[in-house]
């Protein structure tokens, strides 16, 4: 049994096929990479997995349960959380509050609990803050808890977004280009961090352009080009796959 299984997934926009009949899977506690040239359909695939797009055809199974076409909030509730390629934090909320939003699906106090300040609200809120602080500590942002997320430097915003996704205690964490815009040091640090997630028992599916990062952390890699899967395998195989090289360097190179 695979943790996440994708079968024949296709998405067309008008006449354009962004993702074409892709099959892939992610197993428990695995770090899987998804690579491909710009416009290969990687983010579209993410958007389908997380429910932002409804697939034109195909099936998505999470822990053998059909999740095709579910709404994004439902999918997060079920256990798939993501980050965005172009960071989408809540700019006017503090770092701590951003992470606490991540805890939303794992908490249950209602609006009446909040208004009446019931015991459930109070204990849950206390636990929430504690849990959110722990997660901030994991990404090294504990000292920035009261900063508005828009005031954080770029690299820290990326980390905060990962922290926010982790807060929902996801079965699978989808990272969309986590190293984009980071310098070499930051990327190295991020590499270590993602590796550490495996040690915590997490499962990660990551889109990334930084080949060094991908090759050093991913156990398996899928390659998309023009919406179709052109290769899959362990990093070594991918590196020497002629089709992959061609996709990246262009035909005739």
């Amino acid at each position: 049994m695979h943790k996440l299984q994708i079968e024949g997934l296709t998405k067309t926009f008008g006449g354009l096929t962004a993702v074409n009949n892709v099959a892939m899977h992610v197993d428990d506690n695995e770090i899987v990479g998804l690579i491909g040239p710009n416009g290969a359909g990687k983010t579209t695939l993410f958007n389908m997995i997380t429910g932002l797009y409804t697939p034109t055809s195909g099936q998505l199974l999470y822990q053998e349960k059909d999740i095709t076409g579910l709404k994004p909030d439902k999918i997060t509730d079920i256990g798939i959380a993501r980050t965005f390629q172009n960071i989408r934090l809540f700019p006017m909320m503090t770092a701590l509050e951003n992470v606490m939003i991540g805890l939303h699906t794992r908490t249950h106090s209602t609006m009446f609990d909040s208004i009446l300040r019931t015991k459930r609200h109070r204990t849950e809120e206390k636990n929430n803050i504690q849990r959110a602080m722990e997660i901030l500590e994991m990404v090294g942002l504990e000292s920035k808890q009261d900063e508005y997320s828009k005031n954080l430097p770029y690299g820290e915003q990326r980390k905060l977004e990962i922290a926010r996704a982790m807060a929902s205690n996801p079965g699978i964490l989808l990272l969309d280009e986590p190293a984009a815009g980071m310098n070499e040091n930051e990327t190295a640090e991020l590499t270590g961090f993602i590796k550490g997630l495996k040690g915590l028992g997490m499962t990660v599916l990551v889109i990334e352009h930084d080949m060094r990062l991908v090759m050093s952390i991913c156990e398996r890699i899928y390659v998309l080009d023009y919406g179709s899967k052109i290769a899959e395998g362990v990093p070594k195989e991918i590196q020497s796959n002629p089709q992959v090289i061609e996709a990246y360097l262009g035909k005739g190179a």
Binding site: P72, A81, M92, M93, M100, I101, G102, E125, N128
Partner: peptide
């Protein structure tokens, strides 16, 4: 509260809120 944060997150970025 939890509810209030959800409301504010909708103001801040509806799509990200939904994704969370």
């Amino acid at each position: 509260s939890r509810t209030g944060r959800a409301l504010i997150s909708i103001r801040e970025d509806e799509l990200a809120a939904e994704a969370m």
